[in-house]
Design a protein around this nucleic acid. Structure first.
Lengths: 245, 245
DNA sequence: GACGTCCGAATGTCCTAACAAAGTGTGGAC
DNA sequence: GTCCACACTTTGTTAGGACATTCGGACGTC
């Protein structure tokens, strides 16, 4: 039985169960705990760390819902097999590229703070004639054009500038204004490109586009962004993890 | 404050928190609780139903992670706004079509119980020369061909017949054999179709394909299926809900 | 009327405690 | 030697209590 080394700071404002679950996650991701390893049982872990069993259980549960641990009654808890079992996260293309080391660059094609668009207004749940902020950007990965990103935002973002949009990703800009999308509904499809799209993305005639339209909402379920994106299918794909139940 | 009518059966084998959460989910989905409605607070709900607060909290938590309820400390719990806030479920195309009332029909193109395929063996984490079960199907929605589904399965499924595959979806067949995929990693992309694919799907020359490759795993993280699917992009799209954190 | 302080209400965290259910393994009966 | 029953281990469920934290509103002061 691997005896995980854990330090718990009772004076920290971070909840005990979260301190514990973070250190367990770290132990798995850096290989101190390996797939298939049996995990110390709840009772002994609780006693060893001076925590109550519910607290330890809660920490373990956090890893279970992420698929990092597997609990079996009567048997014990084991580290799940290798697979990247992470839940889908709401990420931005800009950050994805930055993380992957493919320096993202953005060119603003259109910025219209007075755009009346009925479908977009519907998506943002405001009256149809409401003037919206419309942003159309061309996103590069390194030197290659990768995607055309069209987004509609509520009027409160009318002060966004081209410089803002070219220096940072849209989601970072929203965060800076304390707007936090927490859930989004996306539809992913494919279609052939228009002439303009082919020109902008430098594509051949027969190459298809991968499309994604997104409705993003904050914690209260208020719409905060509506987007219509298209990607060069030879340079981009969506990775998704789905779960049963 | 809406007083939700709930009946709890203490003799049922179903956990109390789950009985409660199911009835709350039902109340939201059938409109008895409407978006924005304040939710009865935990203490009063616990007392009214004769349950402990932890039990009530756990039931509420289930709806919170699904995005159906929003908790705010000091304020209370409210029903989240309208949006379909459901986590991604692992579904099969066959069931999706059946639910949508578009009678699914399947034509088996290939069934090979002795297929040696190195990439597929790698995906299923078995030695490269292992004979796998390879299934290739053409899926119709009503009269229209919709998708070509290629799947590789471990040798234990060598007894699958064409009749099995044409009468039922692959996932139902797996379930009948107590194999339960619980998590899958999918990559969604697009490409142009080959001549054979165009013929099978009855597509024009310039129409693109939507592609999805899937690695599915059971609760222990063992690979149970590897699939490579392509869909007519004009007839199919993926709906996905993503969450922050 | 504007502003700040205090209080109550609600959720968040943490604890102890007990029993239930499921799976493994051991020991005894045959 | 085989097989069944029982005990033990481990996770699952439920209870009840205590205190912390956060938010909104009421109240008072200036």
């Amino acid at each position: 039985m691997a005896q995980l080394e854990v330090t718990i700071d009772r004076n920290s404002p971070v909840p005990l169960y979260h301190q514990l679950s973070e250190q367990m996650t770290a132990a798995i991701s850096d290989g101190r705990l390996r797939p298939g390893d049996p995990f110390e049982n709840e009772l002994s872990l609780a006693e060893r760390l001076g925590l109550s069993r519910p607290t330890v259980r809660r920490a373990i549960s956090e890893l279970v819902v992420q698929g990092l641990l597997v609990r079996r009654r009567g048997i014990g808890t084991t580290v799940a097999n290798s697979v990247v079992h992470r839940r889908d996260e709401l990420t931005s293309l800009h950050d994805d590229l930055a993380r992957a080391g493919r320096s993202p660059r953005t060119e603003v094609l259109t910025l219209d703070a007075n755009c009346v668009d009925e479908p977009a207004a519907g998506a943002l749940q405001v009256p149809p004639e409401t003037p919206l902020v419309f942003v159309e950007r061309l996103r590069f990965a390194g030197d290659e054009p990768l995607a055309i990103l069209a987004n509609w935002l509520p009027p409160q973002f009318a002060d966004l500038t081209r410089a803002d949009l070219e220096s940072d990703g849209l989601y970072n800009l929203l965060h800076q204004r304390s707007v936090r999308p927490v859930v989004a509904h996306q539809t992913i499809g494919a279609r052939s490109a228009t002439g303009r799209e082919r020109r902008l993305l430098g594509m051949g005639t027969s190459q298809p586009l991968l499309t994604m339209s997104r409705h993003a909402y904050d914690a209260d379920g208020r719409p905060v962004e509506f987007g219509d994106h298209c990607y060069r299918a030879d340079l981009y794909a969506f990775d998704i993890t789905v779960h049963e139940r």
